[in-house]
Amino acid sequence: MAEIKLTLKKKPEFPLEADSITPDNFSGKSIDDIKALEVYIGNQTAKLEDYFEVKGDTGEADDLKIKIDGDLSNVKRIGQEMTTGEIEIDGDVGMHLGNQMKGGKITVNGNADDWAGAMLEGGEIIIKGDTGHYTGAAYRGFWKGMQDGVIRVEGKIGNEAMLWARNSKGANKWPTLYCGEAGSFLGIHNHGGTIVVEGNVDRCCGADQAWGTIVVKGSISTKLPSYKKVGEVNGVELPNGDKIKGKFVEYSGDHSVRKETKGRLFIAA
């Protein structure tokens, strides 16, 4: 696999929008062409080489790995709409990481800011640290958020993760989020997303869920009044085939959306 290494030269004074950093954009380009790709800072346009050192071997997108080093907490939109290849980031990363990504893999050995994996359509995002709010969420006003793919966050995620997630049984698409802990309004307006939380979740979990599955292995600070207890179960099978072991209390909801619902919330017994 060809590998291109980007090293941040200096922390940008304003957020740097680097949506040009994707394997698709680097595909088949020489190092000099990659250095000349555009990035945006404030109302100015700059070149990738103004902020990054670029080294390595070029190749085709599906055989390309981009490795990025440095404190990227002020660099936004890395991996936007990527379809293939791989990105690995050593350090924290800014907003909109891998938004609208369709395929490939992103690994972050650090934290990610808000909107990581927003409106994900495929591929996999692995974040070793925490993420901000709206992880895997729909952008403002969209009724279809994350539609496929997997996000794995080892740490805590912020509020309103998986907002308006939407599965498709016919197309075999199962948007899935695994995380360590979660903030409030996890899986709000969920339409078929699957969420597994290793630890605790803040208030209003599964608010307005039409259908979908949320599994919480820890506890919830306050359960919404519109969720009704169904019974106790031993293990949960997720729609994507994964099996979660353990004893859970099964709740149906959100009943504020409809009286009979396939939405399920499992909380560790």
């Binding site: 208030r203 209003c204 608010a207 306050t222 919404l224 009044p225 519109s226 959100d254 009943h255 504020s256 409809r258 009286k259």
Partner: peptide, 12 residues
């Protein structure tokens, strides 16, 4: 939020 959520459930 919780109060409105409860009202909506009762309405259903």
């Amino acid at each position: 939020y919780e109060l409105m959520n409860a009202i909506r459930a009762v309405l259903r």
